[in-house]
Design a protein around this nucleic acid. Structure first.
Length: 877
RNA sequence: GGGUGAUUAGCUCAGUUGGUUAGAGCACUUCUCUUACAAAGAAGGGGUCAGUGGUUCGAGUCCACUAUCACCCACCA
């Protein structure tokens, strides 16, 4: 038997263990079938890994994701399910491209246009590859049992085929259309972004109140005066009496800041009467709301800002070519000069900002591709819309979201959903599979036959391809065995921050293209924050690098600290102290292993005659197996871990091993510990696998990873003697009380007093003399046959009855009397409360009878005990 | 403006469908190097479950309101 180091050193074993796992091929369910770990017809369990972006390195959020998913996957693999966990990465179009653009600019001062599309893309791909290598190695370091043979990338050829096919089908159903509509334009990234990629930041702004001209009847308010040269209407509320007489009239302003305006007064219920002057200058081309009004009222649209956030020709000679900021100053100055400015006020306002680049969003009308979410189409002979499909998937219960409250948030998002703009003016991504020649339009992956075809220069929103992830990774659009076997997947585990971006879009794509949900359960984890509750970020310097801490404390410790003490959907604070705590626990398990391994499994002294400790630990083990299994089935990872930790530390290490040192049953010790390793494996795979190599027996499987999950109906648990279980509980209490007494009377460990106890306890005390002497550190145990307590005794109540313990010659009578008086006072109070309660008629007649009976019994017991205590106190004088 | 969550020990958080005396980890106090483990062991202190009211025989748990904090959605321009 090899000698185990006194302290567990994760670094020395983790790499080698992962290599051995990977080499065995058992991450791949096909190999598990060949190896007899599972069968073709077994239950399926499949998860796709939310693909990390190829923009950099993994953070603690990824580590949490990997820990949770790996725990599920390992549990199901051990259970014998046909288990697949499919890895991949995401090209994250805008994020990756803008990162490379930044690097390029920093290194060479060049822009992407200087390089040209092809050369630039080559550069992005090189970056993505490097980043990808880092990510994959980090996943390995976290112990993730991913099936690398099935790995996918959102931008690789098989996925591109899926994207083109999805686009084609939606286009043919007229659910994808090209439209000239107002979009969110990011001038910094030079691309459109979807509504979900826009963030709102609170900023202060000046609200200007002015008139277009001296004789214009209505003053309006705005924070963006530069857009006012694009106004085509003024909107007021239909009920607003102040302006009612102007509704329908048209005014012509010959000179407004160097250009002329034609303004119609319209009535629209969207206008808030109490904001500003209650009148809104309508700028259809540069505001979403105004655009919608222009559709309702058929207003002309005047475009005065271009893609670079500069004023266009239409803005007039005085403003054209100026940036929006410059133009704003000019307009304000012009208003002042012409005495048209009626008020200035500082207000807080939310500004739209692009999520990835931080650029201020400029709403612009542009020709873009959209997915129509409200357009009816035929499905199984019935009319439906995409919106209905994604709502029904959750409403019908086909998909469960954990925690459930996110279902409400999900529905709310659907209610506010507008058509999804899917074209992006960036180069990195799936090129839109549309070809133009004159007025002809063809959807195809490659150029159609004939000359003169030009492909759309834009690429698709990255979430378009991510939306296909659960099935594009399994071979769709082909009807492959993988697709048939593993789709729909069982669980989608991800952070709640991408519920809309990704989860909802996967549901959209899957229900539309396949007619089935992409997954049965959505498990949303929270964000990981630092110990002060701040978001982890590089700039704050508070980020915990998962790789860094896993080297320092061990991967198992990192995984435990992410799994235990966290609840779904709830943000979690993580500090290094917590990880260090679980490092200590890993070491504890290691040392338990050292003790167990120092005992010979074949050496069963009293294997046939189990000790009370044996019965006791088996009863607890059986209970633990059942509880942990149930928690895992219900996605309660934290609780599963806590139950296991309690059993391991408090029951197995603190009591069973201590008892074992006195009355040995080595075979059972080994068995319980082996079961424990199995239970722990999904949570902390490395240390358990390492210990397993030492405890392995003939007939065991190669790895703990593919060993069978402990079963409920094991013969091991047959014939557990409940009397012995109870007896050991009493013994535990007895020893704890002796220890408390020692502390109370300041008996140092080197002194061994005599223990005397009365008849209530003497039977058990006599039977387990050895254990009591050893663990209680007493010289001898003497049983009294008297029913009245001897003088100078300490009266103690165990959970199972009352008895008297005497530590001979060492009792401090004054102190003990004081203690007894205190206890009497407490009990008396308790009795009064109980009597009062039992005198309430409502309680006696309406509470369940067993509760009332129990209460009565407790009262009687307490009364008896007070009498005893009084006696004991008198005997002390 | 609408919505969601949080508020439980000094700190970080559990607490399944309401049910005996509200738990854990860390920190703290005292003692101990006892042959698996000082990254440990033993004993101990510490809580008006944010507040108010309600439902109930019974509320940390359910309902209403209030307070504080956090987040999400929404272009009141």
């Amino acid at each position: 038997m090899t000698e185990l180091a006194k302290i567990y050193d994760p670094q020395s074993v983790e790499k080698e263990i992962y290599r051995a796992w990977e080499e065995s091929g058992y991450f791949n369910p096909d190999v598990c079938i060949t190896g007899g770990i599972t069968t073709e017809g077994a239950e399926r369990f499949s998860i796709v890994l939310p693909p990390p972006n190829v923009t950099g390195i993994l953070h603690t959020g990824h580590a949490a994701m990997l820990a949770i998913e790996d725990t599920m996957v390992r549990y199901h693999r051990m259970k014998g399910d046909r288990t697949l966990w499919l890895p991949g990465t995401d090209h994250a179009a805008i994020a990756t491209q803008s990162k490379v653009e930044k690097l390029l600019h920093k290194e060479t001062g060049q822009s992407r246009y200087d390089l040209g599309r092809e050369a630039f893309l080559a550069r992005v791909e090189k970056f993505a590859q490097d980043s990808y290598d880092t990510i994959v190695n980090q996943c390995r370091a976290m112990g993730a049992s991913l099936d690398w043979s099935r790995e996918a990338f959102t931008l690789d050829p098989p996925r591109h085929r899926a994207v083109v096919e999805a686009f084609r089908r939606m286009y043919n159903d007229s659910l994808i259309y090209r439209g000239d509509r107002i979009v969110n334009w990011d001038p910094k990234g030079q691309t459109t972004v979807s509504d979900d990629e826009v963030l709102h930041e609170e900023r202060t702004a000046t609200l200007y109140t002015f008139r277009y001209s001296k004789d214009f009847p209505i003053a309006i308010s705005t924070t963006r005066p530069e857009t006012k040269v694009g106004d085509t209407a003024v909107a007021v509320h239909p009920d607003d009496e102040r302006y009612a007489r102007y509704i329908g009239k048209t005014f012509k302003i010959d000179d407004f800041c160097g250009t002329s305006l034609t303004i119609r007064i319209i009535a629209d219920p969207e206008v808030a009467q109490d904001f500003g002057t209650g009148a809104l200058g309508v700028t259809p081309a540069h505001s979403h709301i105004d655009w919608e009004m222009s559709e309702r009222h058929n207003l002309p649209r005047r475009r005065v800002i271009n893609e670079d956030a500069r004023m266009t020709e239409e803005a007039g000679p005085y403003l054209r070519g100026k940036t929006t900021t410059e133009a704003r100053e000019r307009v304000v100055q012009w208003l002042r000069d012409n005495d048209l400015l009626e008020g200035e006020e500082t207000i807080t306002q939310s500004v739209s900002v692009a999520e990835r680049t931080g650029g201020i969003i400029e709403p612009l009308p542009k020709k873009q591709w959209f997915v129509a979410v409200n357009k009816p189409f035929e499905r199984d002979g019935k009319k439906t819309t995409l919106k209905e499909l994604i709502a029904n998937a959750v409403k019908s219960g086909a998909i469960d979201i954990i925690p459930q409250r996110f279902e409400k948030i999900y529905f709310h998002w659907i209610d506010n959903l507008r058509d999804w703009c899917i074209s992006r003016q960036i180069w990195y991504g799936h090129r839109i599979p549309v070809w133009y020649r004159g007025n002809e339009i063809v959807v195809s992956e490659h150029a159609p036959d004939g000359d003169g075809w030009k492909q759309d220069p834009d690429t698709l929103d990255t979430w378009f391809s991510s939306g296909l992830w659960t099935f594009s990774t399994l071979g769709w659009p082909d009807d492959t065995p993988d697709f048939r076997t593993y789709h729909p997947t069982n669980v989608l585990e991800t952070g709640y921050d991408i519920l809309f971006f990704w989860v909802a879009r996967m549901i959209l794509m899957s229900t539309y293209l396949i007619g089935d949900v992409p997954f049965r359960t959505v498990y949303l984890h929270g964000l990981i924050r630092d110990e002060k509750g701040r978001k982890m970020s590089k700039s704050l310097g508070n980020a915990i690098d998962p790789l860094d801490v896993s080297v320092r404390y061990g991967t198992d410790a990192v995984r435990l600290s992410l799994l235990i003490g966290s609840t779904p959907g709830q943000d979690m604070r993580l500090g290094k102290e917590k990880i260090a705590g679980y490092r200590n626990f890993t070491n504890k398990l290691w040392n338990i292993g050292r003790y167990v391994l120092s005992q010979d499994a074949k050496n069963a002294h009293i294997a046939e005659a189990r000790t009370p400790a044996d019965h006791w630990i088996l009863a607890h083990l059986q209970n633990t197996v059942a509880t942990v299994t149930e928690h895992l089935e219900k996605f309660r990872f934290s609780q599963a871990g806590e139950v296991l930790r309690d059993f391991t530390w408090n029951d197995f290490a603190d009591w069973y091993i201590e008892a074992h040192k006195i009355e040995r049953n080595d075979a059972l010790l080994h068995t319980v510990f082996r079961t424990l390793l199995h239970l722990w494996h999904p949570f902390m795979p490395f240390v358990t696998e390492e210990l397993f190599t030492h405890i392995k027996q003939k007939g065991d499987r190669d790895f703990l990873m593919v060993s069978q999950w402990p079963q409920h109906d094991n013969t091991l648990y047959a014939n557990i003697a409940q009397d012995d279980v109870m007896q050991f509980d009493i013994l535990k209490d007895l020893i704890a009380k002796i220890r408390a007494l020692r502390a109370l009377y300041n008996i140092t460990p080197d002194k061994k007093p005599l223990l005397t106890c009365d008849t209530n306890l003497c039977a058990i005390a006599a039977k387990h003399k050895d254990i009591i002497m050893r663990l209680g550190r007493v010289a001898d145990v003497i049983a009294h046959t008297n029913t009245t307590p001897p003088r100078e005794s300490a009266a103690l109540t165990t959970a199972h009855g009352t008895g008297y313990l005497l530590l001979e010659g060492l009792v401090d009578t004054a102190r003990e009397r004081e203690r007894l008086s205190k206890e009497i006072a407490e009990l008396t109070e308790n009795i009064t409360a109980k009597q009062k309660r039992l005198s309430q008629e409502s309680f006696v007649t309406r509470a369940p009878q067993d509760v009332v009976a129990k209460e009565k019994a407790l009262l009687a017991e307490a009364q008896k005990r007070v009498t005893e205590l009084h006696n004991a106190r008198e005997n002390l004088t």
